[in-house]
Design a protein around this nucleic acid. Structure first.
Lengths: 334, 334
DNA sequence: CAATAATGTGCAATCGTTTGTATATTTTTT
DNA sequence: AAAAAATATACAAACGATTGCACATTATTG
């Protein structure tokens, strides 16, 4: 079963390949009659265009590359899903690679994508990345680069980020309004802007309530379940009665620590997380958290990419709203 | 900044493009000296091979297509991750599409991948798919097809599935050994083999224990959280004292139902799930479940694909072992 | 030293499209 | 009815690599 090409169709119809090509592309330069005939015959013959040939000739492909730290992370897989949702109907296919948070892998991925002559690259930068040469190369090559979540200001092109600030602000505010008085913050790495923003949201909420922030209540790099567990056991006895965690996993660690200490979550100690992992509403008590709307973010990212490919790209930072989800862990009413 | 081609390198070195091509491919027909020189200059000039041109000429690309129902499902994203882990170092890139459980999308995805002349297609069939013409077309086109998890015997090529049977058997067996006497089964669709296998595992475990199976204890299509919740409220009063669910989500629904009914999980009523979702060890009491080892499965799938691409593909079904994880929900010792 | 083999490189066609320009045909305008 | 404009199709050169075959040079052999 040999692959049928436009030349085969041309031969069968007694016209030239160029006419076939134009007919299939609905070019008005070929008569409507011919166009219909060509399409009919093409379908009959089971013609499948060879996108590689087309891309080679056109100088760009219909592939969009995407590099994320890990595919199997709730947030990232949601973004991917959203991107795909928009990109596919627009005629693009997604080439996905993961960096595993390693700069080396990221560089390799970029090269691989560039060799495939992708129409653009979407990425959320690895946490290890401190040199942006590989991405700068993308930009210099005039290949659209759209960043999301973990973005670098050093690189031009569209950026799409969550409204980490507001999410953190709202989560913290609710803890304060529920009556907790010494609300701590378990943050992430200061190197990642997302965490800085969450911290800022926390600080401003506290400031707006008390007029000042107690720096002693802020702990950095407490982002894993284990870290949350250890840290809360360390500080819970020091008069702290609530914590806003920069991630749901550390919040769950806090749950474990508190249970071990015999401290009642919600009644005696408020907790809020960030990310709204699926388990947030399944644990007891249910965990207040901030939903990141990954799919929505992915859709925005995809739209930016399409614009950029079409030459109407903007060098802007888009902030996607987040949703604070109030559950039992942050209300004293339990 | 114009893209540099092998012709540019050839011109600079005063040789022909063919020599460059061979040198870069480490062909012994060009002298070691020349090869090294070419590579050095290529690097200096920032040469990035054009994979589309190469693929066009060679008649096949280094892209592997993958179609899954949903990217953002824990299990699938793990498989993708595993596939990528093996395929990338081997020089292949992954083109991912989701079917959203729709036949139409699946067909579109297949066409899109075929047009991109992928070297092979990996897929887990949509639950809606009852016609396999699109995949048969892939097989007929001699494009390797590797199926996983949701496979069809109608299609030739490697298949990789979980040992659903054993996982279900072990989970059920543990419930019986813990002393529960009327163990029900909340299963999935009979159309999907995976669920049939889980049911079979349940049945055999019960048979081995009691000598016979009470068909009345088996409920089909109870796979969502909502369904589990409703069903357990309906049947818990009928003397049932445990349930093996074909999925963790329905198991969680069972938790909700039981809590509402005031029935103590584990002490009075045993529960086991399937899938080992992240929340399984975070809920109270922790949920016994069967881990599917998605990444491992992905790695196996990728290896099968590489074999198939290299012409040494087997038309076999590989069974990947699962891991029963015993937690509190299925022991009366709580 | 002639004949043969081995080695390294060049030539040119090819993969399947796209597209600028040319040409042939038809239609419209004056 | 001749000139101009519009329409439809053909021609041929790309795009950037790969590869069978030919050729030239050097090394090996009898």
């Amino acid at each position: 079963m040999k692959k049928v090409t436009i030349n085969d169709i041309a031969k069968k119809l007694g016209v030239t390949p160029s006419t076939i090509s134009r007919a299939l592309a609905d070019n008005k330069r070929v008569s409507l009659k011919t166009r219909e005939m060509v399409k009919k015959v093409a379908k009959e013959m089971g013609y499948q265009p060879n996108l590689m040939a087309a891309s080679l000739r056109k100088g760009r492909s219909d592939l969009v590359g995407m590099i994320v730290p890990r595919i199997n992370r709730h947030f990232f897989s949601n973004v991917i899903s959203g991107v795909e949702e928009i990109l596919n109907p627009a005629g693009y296919s997604l080439l996905i690679m993961q960096s595993h948070e390693k700069l080396r892998s990221e560089v390799k991925a970029v090269n691989s994508l560039m060799q495939n002559r992708v129409a653009g690259i979407i990425t959320s930068i690895s946490s290890e990345t401190d040199d942006f040469g590989h991405f700068q190369y993308v930009v210099d090559s005039k290949v659209p680069l759209v960043q999301f979540d973990r973005v670098s200001k050093e690189l031009t092109g569209a950026k799409v980020v969550n409204d980490n600030y507001t999410g953190a602000y709202l989560a913290t505010k609710k803890l304060l309004e529920s009556g907790y008085r010494r609300v701590a913050h378990f943050g992430g790495s200061r190197l990642l802007k997302a965490y800085c923003e969450r911290r800022r949201g926390y600080e401003d909420a506290v400031k707006d309530y008390f007029g000042k922030v107690d720096e002693g209540l802020i702990m950095e790099d407490v982002i894993t379940r284990e870290a949350g567990y250890l840290k809360v056991k360390e500080v819970a006895k020091e008069g702290i009665d609530a914590v806003f965690c920069a991630g749901d996993y550390s919040a769950f660690g806090v749950y474990e620590g508190l249970k071990e200490l015999g401290i009642s979550i919600s009644k005696e100690f408020g907790v809020a997380g960030f990310g709204n992992e699926p388990f947030a509403e399944m644990i007891y008590p249910t965990l207040s958290s901030v939903e990141q709307q990954g799919s929505e973010m992915g859709r925005m990212v995809a739209r930016q990419m399409i614009d950029a490919i079409n030459g109407s790209g903007h060098n802007i930072e888009i902030v996607v709203p987040v949703k604070y989800i109030d559950r039992d862990s942050s209300g004293k009413v339990l």
